[in-house]
Nucleic acid binder design. Sequence first.
DNA 1: TAGGGTCTGGACAACGTTGTCAGGGGCGGG
DNA 2: CCCGCCCCTGACAACGTTGTCCAGACCCTA
Lengths: 347, 347
Amino acid sequence: MTDSPTDTASSRYGSRPTMKDVAARAGVGLKTVSRVVNGEAGVTPDTEQRVREAILALGFRRNDSARILRKGRTSSIGLVLEDLADPFYAPLSRAVEEVARAHGTLLINGSSAEEPAREQELVLAFCARRVDGLVIIPASDDHRYLEPEIAAGIATVFVDRPAGRIDVDTVLSDSHGGARDGVAHLIAQGHRRIGFVGDHPQIHTAAERLRGYRTAMTEASLPVHGSWVSMGSTDPERVRTAIGAMLDGPEPVTALFAGNNRVTVTAVRMLRERARSAPVALVGFDDFELADLLSPGITVVAQDPAELGRTAAETLFRRLEGVHDAPKRVELPTRLIVRGSGEVPPA
Amino acid sequence: MTDSPTDTASSRYGSRPTMKDVAARAGVGLKTVSRVVNGEAGVTPDTEQRVREAILALGFRRNDSARILRKGRTSSIGLVLEDLADPFYAPLSRAVEEVARAHGTLLINGSSAEEPAREQELVLAFCARRVDGLVIIPASDDHRYLEPEIAAGIATVFVDRPAGRIDVDTVLSDSHGGARDGVAHLIAQGHRRIGFVGDHPQIHTAAERLRGYRTAMTEASLPVHGSWVSMGSTDPERVRTAIGAMLDGPEPVTALFAGNNRVTVTAVRMLRERARSAPVALVGFDDFELADLLSPGITVVAQDPAELGRTAAETLFRRLEGVHDAPKRVELPTRLIVRGSGEVPPA
DNA sequence: TAGGGTCTGGACAACGTTGTCAGGGGCGGG
DNA sequence: CCCGCCCCTGACAACGTTGTCCAGACCCTA
């Protein structure tokens, strides 16, 4: 027995039938199977029926790798973010997925864990897969490594934080304005000594929020004591130390502005533990679930992560549909949600 | 000009250089470029250097579609879950990603939105991409459509809920035991009339938790009044109505067991609003962030979603590495976390 | 210096699909 | 009745990579 018809790929273990196998079984040509599978016109109902039966009988499933190779489009996009499990990014990711789905596109994603090397590794892996586009929440600040990819036609959109050293579409929240509003709110309650605890200063959003804090203080002609500002890791221990120093320092603050949801939660825990001391007002950047159920409810400057994701994905698909104007920068507004913790009067 | 050397793919817009282009530029053969790109032995440092320069100059990036087609392995796995943004599933997803990353594998994922059709659509799309394996949190109860895929060698693991009508590896939490423990805890506090509010009964975990509730009640020789059990959508309105009926009905309950985190949160809100009435004890299935910061803290039966994901992914990779024994069913233990809400005595 | 072994490099086919093109058969109109 | 057109179908090349295989160069030793 040399190369009998049954001895094709379809009979080997772990191997799948190909269009060729289906064609053989249905007694038609290869291309006819392709036509049926892709719903192309020009196939007799009778022939189509035979092909469909063969497909079912063999359990045939089109090999998209081959299709992609031939067509050049993968119908998939890549999403790189810091941490899929972060409650802020999860809805963003989900929103991107929904938009992708509406465009018949799959989503590949990866977490950079805030490590520049891992971000690049993921992005390049996606590019090697020839994703049609990329949505990136950057962890690094130099994205020139993307230039050949973009030149080769991979549409790219940055979200939440801007790209470094390249000019691409970007969708951000108004961190500066939001922080300014939040701090202004505290000032309006009568606070004069306000602390700011934020993430690492090299993270764009963190820097912008600090800037918003300073803007609000300046606009109210309030001085900012050096010990009132603390930037760095959002590790609870560090945040606790920082807040402790602000509360017990020579110029104790009467209110705190927390630069993101992780800091806010740590601040809540800490203030709760010190409940016997004078109450401290708190406004946080980022909304979070159950913020309204705490006592008092936590006043926050809310962003809309789903809207960020949706906007970014829609921008991406607009590019994929052939829009070629200059890169745009969109800045989404934030919203102050008053719940109680920010309305505590100064001691 | 007919087909001059410069008129290759690399010069067309949106097209990328291929190994052929790199080979031409470096003045070597095609296969040599392949060898350099894949770090194969047998290339002189000098030659390798020339190839690397050409790669950099042209911005070449290997086309993984072609590679996959040739090699048959995609080094990617698919994850189908209900909702990426759900705080319960997000850590699970992240855990799967980490394990995948450790195996040099990319993760493609999709949300089924609890719709069986969408689950199947996603799974088959992943199969068409020839993912090496699948991790599935099912939304449907009949997975025979997966049989040809599994036969073709796509490793498959179900998590959180079992597969329907096929025999595959499964990783679950001990829903029955956890619910029993939680309800027994309420009984130990002296409660006799305990309500159960759960998700749709066709969802396996929901049914198991109900069963655990009944087991605990039976073990304590307590009757279960028909109005104390409510299964269905976790939509807040429905849950509120259900809880209202239990609290104000002819046999008012003094304690509630909530079948998952969404129900728990709605219950917390509702009990808070009725704070003036007699206090009601509450234990919830699933832990959630800030559960300890509420007053009282919420007593929960905690699962470890990350551990679920990790175990599932590791099971998957064990299969991919060639282990071929019978499908296994793993059940992870739950843990009762006492925080206050479950220790409220009966009115 | 010749012979054998090793090391480097390249030609070629194959992976499974889709686009191109051409051929055959049926049908309608002249 | 014949011609021409259209519809259906299939043969073939191409997508970009990797595995196989072979040829030539180089080196070492006898």
